[in-house]
Design a protein around this nucleic acid. Sequence first.
DNA 1: ACTTTACAGATTCTATGGTTTTGTAAACCT
DNA 2: AGGTTTACAAAACCATAGAATCTGTAAAGT
Lengths: 199, 199
Amino acid sequence: MTTTTEASVRERLLASAADITAESGWAAVTMSKVATRAGVSRQTVYNELGTKPALGQAMVLRELERFLAIVERELDAADDLVTAIRSATEHILVMAEGNPLLHALLASAHSVSRGNEPASNNELLPFLTTDAQPLIAAATAVIDERLDRFPDVDLGPHQRAVAIDAIVRLVLSHVMQPGSSPAATADDLAWIVARVLRG
Amino acid sequence: MTTTTEASVRERLLASAADITAESGWAAVTMSKVATRAGVSRQTVYNELGTKPALGQAMVLRELERFLAIVERELDAADDLVTAIRSATEHILVMAEGNPLLHALLASAHSVSRGNEPASNNELLPFLTTDAQPLIAAATAVIDERLDRFPDVDLGPHQRAVAIDAIVRLVLSHVMQPGSSPAATADDLAWIVARVLRG
DNA sequence: ACTTTACAGATTCTATGGTTTTGTAAACCT
DNA sequence: AGGTTTACAAAACCATAGAATCTGTAAAGT
């Protein structure tokens, strides 16, 4: 199949774009630089990802999937549901703390029109703030799937959805605006989840 | 006392700034326009509020206090704690839905470098997103005070603080990224609060 | 207490080219 | 096929410079 090669090229392209964004901001990302860094021609970028906004969206989506992969792994690892949520939350927060791309996006919120730097860093920030609904939906779906494995959830479908939505929003809130350490926050959120799920 | 007049001038200035921001964005706000609209000289703006960033901060703070006043009113009105939270949440979400200033700030997230419009609308957005900690702290403090009136809260100080922090973050999340109607969201959050507070 | 007037420095606007980047398309290679 | 090179028009960006505006401070006036 060509799938392996195809995914590999696309993966390398997105990784290159993420690197450049983390180093110099999204405005500094050009199709040429992405292509060069990935060892590929510029047109391959267009063939693979289309336009630059599409590249940005794919890059953010890829990073989201990296986070969601951790969530899936942690939710599958633990036996206890609350422990699973706690572990997934802590891993997400730790991962967020040390994620250069995420920090580049968040940093773009502050210095918007600073000096000679370009101002268009903010094209991607809405994915985390005002247009976070796709992100919330994706995370919600992942948790919803993995939650079937646990027997001690006796909530109706609506209440179940509400609870999942809440934990996703809370984690996202702490990603953008950390309260204390990831471990402490994970403890707190796990306590809330415990109270909500089996009140 | 001069306090009445002083507060009135300051109030008129902040209201003028909020109007201009709602109409044309924060970048279109100049000290002269604010002064003129408030029927006051430009220097009075400087005497009263100092610099323009200070004006922006005061303007946001004033809007926050308008929201928190609603929270206080609703928390004081109801007898049942869960009903109080539900009512406060719904009022906040309804108020947020129809708040022009808030929408001006949120809209600035999208069109950053659009056409000929100035790009510096984003100076105020971080107050709601990446620098929301003061906002969270203020809201948390308000709720914390009003919560003493309700006897059926048997949480330790830490758990109590965690619960309040969570409800504040959840409401803020829904202000920026509404899920469904204010009433439905208020129902859902009230249910969560009920489960958490008296699990 | 507020206004008017004045002022230097910074920032923004306008307008101009020159440059880069985007996005599409073809021909070519292997 | 998957990929590259080359080419190209349109758009976006950059640099420069002068005009206009805005900021922030100060003083004198009412």
